[in-house]
């Protein structure tokens, strides 16, 4: 169990480091001229942001729902173990 926790922390740290480094790197080539797209009759930028946000909201919702189900199953299993132990004690 401890090994897995160490692995998980190391992975989380690696991901955080990559995220921070690439975010800093991404700021460099901000030379794309998007000004002409601001005058569009249908706002492409707003549609783009809405699409990406919706995708991440759905992904986060699914992950959250899975975690809730997992926690419920683990709680049910713990309750069963307690019942088994109480039964064995009798």
């Amino acid at each position: 169990m401890k090994t897995h926790r160490i692995w998980a922390r190391a992975l989380a740290l690696a991901i955080a480091a990559v995220l921070a480094a690439s975010s800093a790197w991404a700021e460099a080539p901000a030379a794309q001229d998007l000004s002409r797209y601001k005058e569009e009759p249908v706002p492409g930028g707003a549609l783009l942001v809405a699409a990406y946000m919706a995708m991440w909201v759905i992904a986060a919702g699914f992950v959250g729902w899975t975690l809730l189900r997992q926690q419920k199953a683990e709680a049910a299993l713990r309750e069963l173990e307690d019942r088994l132990e109480a039964g064995a004690g009798r």
Binding site: I15, A26, Q32, E40, G45, L47, L48, A51, M55
Partner: peptide
Amino acid sequence: IEAALYVIAARTPPDVTLGVVQKIFYFH
């Protein structure tokens, strides 16, 4: 995904006809 977001946001040019909305295509 992080690498893809970086390339999409900072490296790919907006589409000639559709503009920035074309960037939905990569994740769609």
